[in-house]
């Protein structure tokens, strides 16, 4: 456990000292979401109807943006070799890295999402559901993304590969994330969607450390 906490605090400290890098994902999130009205026009009703989808899709892409660095820096400077050689199970290492990624990427996105909802004229009654759905969905994005980041270590142009590997796997999260919000806004019961988001989170919580650790081990070869 000390290794888990040590790695988590180190990654958070690294992110804190490179604040500019960490804020890029949020900036991208807000900026790219702000582009849609230029594409479809400023009509308030249309934007309000699009809001859940736009927020989720851009959040998905913003998470992708920061995934490449998740293991790459440690891979390049040799730190990853030492983590593989540490007595702590590698699965816990993957979990710690994914958690650090979520704290530095997912959490700021959740904080910025209400701002976008405001810009899109979304009904404020949907805000609690937006926060809840993103709080359940974005950790899965970090976890599944960790698999992709680990698999592409040492690949040529890994940064371009990651979206190709990770996006198809993220589709269920997108579907239920948007559906929960849509249901809440339309006065329907969002409970089943939220349950599915939770199930997806638990599933990726199990799958991602195992697959990620296997990927890291083979990256040492």
């Amino acid at each position: 456990m000390s290794g888990f906490l040590g790695l988590l605090t180190r990654d958070l400290r690294l992110a804190l000292r490179r604040r500019a890098d960490a804020s890029l994902a949020v900036l991208f999130f807000v900026l790219s979401a702000a582009l849609f009205p230029f594409g479809v026009g400023p009509e308030a009703n249309l934007l309000a109807r699009m809001a859940p989808g736009v927020i989720w899709v851009t959040a998905l892409l913003a998470v992708l943006l920061s995934l490449e660095r998740l293991f790459l820096a440690d891979y390049e400077d040799g730190s990853l070799e030492l983590m593989v050689l540490a007595p702590q199970p590698l699965e816990l290492t993957v979990l710690a890295k994914a958690l650090a990624h979520w704290l530095t990427t997912g959490l700021p996105l959740i904080a910025a999402a209400p701002l976008l909802a405001l810009l899109y004229n979304m009904d404020p009654a949907g805000l609690p559901m937006l926060i809840l759905a993103m709080a359940l969905g974005t950790p899965s994005l970090s976890l599944i993304g960790a698999i992709g980041a680990a698999l592409t270590l040492g690949a040529r142009r890994g940064g371009v590969l990651i979206p190709l590997l990770v996006l198809p796997l993220n589709i269920p999260i997108l579907i239920f994330g948007v559906a929960a919000l849509d249901a809440a806004l339309g006065g329907l019961n969002p409970r089943p969607h939220i349950m599915f988001l939770g199930a997806l989170f638990l599933g990726s919580l199990v799958l991602a450390p195992i697959a990620g650790a296997a990927a890291l081990r083979q990256a040492m070869e």
Binding site: L151, T152, L161, L165, A219, E221
Partner: peptide
């Protein structure tokens, strides 16, 4: 794409195998 992205064929195969199972 993952299979072909590595200079070493063994590594490409290993990574693609993990991806195939996850998929």
């Amino acid at each position: 794409a993952l299979m072909g992205a590595f200079d070493s064929a063994t590594r490409g195969a290993r990574a693609a195998a993990i991806l195939a199972l996850v998929g």
